[in-house]
Amino acid sequence: MSALVAAVPAVLAEGGQTSGAEEALFWVLAPVMVLAALGLLFARKAVHAALSLIVVMISLAFMYVAQGAVFLGVVQVVVYTGAIMMLFLFVLMLVGVGSSDSLVETIRGQRWAGWIAALGLVAVLAGVLGTALYPESVGLEEANARSNPEGVAEVIFADHVFAMEVVGALLVTAALGALVLTHRRRLGPKRGQRELADLRVEGGHHLAPLPAPGVYARHNAMDVPALDPYGNPLESSVPRVLRVRGQEADAAEYAARIDRVLAGRAAKPDENPPPAADPAGQAVNAPDIADAVAGVDLEGETK
């Protein structure tokens, strides 16, 4: 891109005639832009549509630069692509990967109205294009005489400074309005880290992080409760989601199995190495990975 940016102005012909390089750039960018614009229309996922729009915007910025409007091209990327589209994407992202747009008509006859409007637009555009004249472009040299940003600055801040001020006042008012409208009065005192900690101690809740789940060796064993120093299962060590779904393993079975392993080892002290898994594991009604997977699938369906 940078090489192109360097190359394009150097080889542009004088007087607005497109040179070879600009034409080449156009014929590279135009199909990309058309494809991306079609992608914007036909993409099923909102994020894909947004991405297509970003491609169109960046290609448009290249075109601006090639036309001698360097400032406009770069600002197009900084403002529209970098800030505004990012905010759009920020919201769209929260929709999730799995979902795609529903194509159900929410307004009656919306699709037909859309087609008719589109046909009208095509007719108008075709008419404009068919009758358009392309006179020699004039004034680019003078406009960019000092440099492109300075020319833009002169137009905005000298020729149209009043309109600029009005727009500025409007934007400040809008920003203030947004602040006022979204402002909520705080109902209670603010609770900081300190206050929350005090509350936790006062309420007698768990002060330390919750214990981690118990067994790691068998499968991904997040469902097995850890044991406290006295051998009692700690319910809180199993993630709450699993507990709510009823996928928690029975700690008593695991504890009993540990007891059996210990007993077996006591009976045969010279057994070496100790068994990694309980040889009688099949007999115990212990949850296995297959059960866990099946359970997850079921829950996923119902969710």
């Binding site: 102005p9 150097a10 542009l12 012909a13 004088e14 001698g68 360097v70 680019l140 040299e141 960019n144 005489a145 000092r146 440099s147 492109n148």
Partner: peptide, 10 residues
């Protein structure tokens, strides 16, 4: 050439 118009850089 547009270079003169576009790039008064050092």
């Amino acid at each position: 050439m547009l270079t003169a118009a576009i790039a008064p850089v050092t």
